[in-house]
């Protein structure tokens, strides 16, 4: 599923739109521990987190992630947005919890594979 389609189906709000929306999403990784994401997230995963500080941009960039989804209506910091724009890291937010948005995305991607 393309990132553009995924964001539409999940009703995500876009905070930083510089980047590739046509990328094929490979799955998702949910974690708030940056070292975990560095160690385990896979390329083109979307990253589900409540962390909003600027370090998330570097992690997304280094791991080649498709996008970041901030949960519980968290908004990215100013510095985070600025950096994300420079680095072409797409950032969304949702009012859903990490649990619910993971669940919905899991269902969407599972349906697609059958």
């Amino acid at each position: 599923m393309k990132l553009s389609e995924l964001s539409g189906l999940l009703g995500l709000a876009t905070h930083q739109s510089q980047g590739r929306f046509d990328v094929e999403v490979s799955g998702a990784y949910a974690s708030d521990l940056l070292s975990d994401v560095m160690g385990f997230a896979k390329e083109k995963n979307v990253w589900i987190t409540c962390q909003t500080h600027e370090n998330i941009v570097a992690v997304a960039k280094l791991r080649n992630l498709a996008a970041i989804i901030l949960v519980n209506s968290h908004k990215p910091d100013e510095a985070t947005l600025r950096l994300a724009r420079e680095e072409n890291v797409i950032i969304f937010s949702t009012s859903e919890s990490a649990f619910a948005i993971s669940g919905k995305l899991f269902n969407l991607l599972a349906k697609q594979n059958h």
């Binding site: 385990f40 009012s95 990490a98």
Partner: peptide
């Protein structure tokens, strides 16, 4: 399970999250 898979499996089987509202 990774966090994402764990959430996905439980959500798929009917467990609910708690939303802000």
């Amino acid at each position: 399970c990774m966090m994402y898979e764990a959430c996905g499996l439980l959500y798929q089987n009917g467990l609910l999250g708690v939303s802000l509202l």
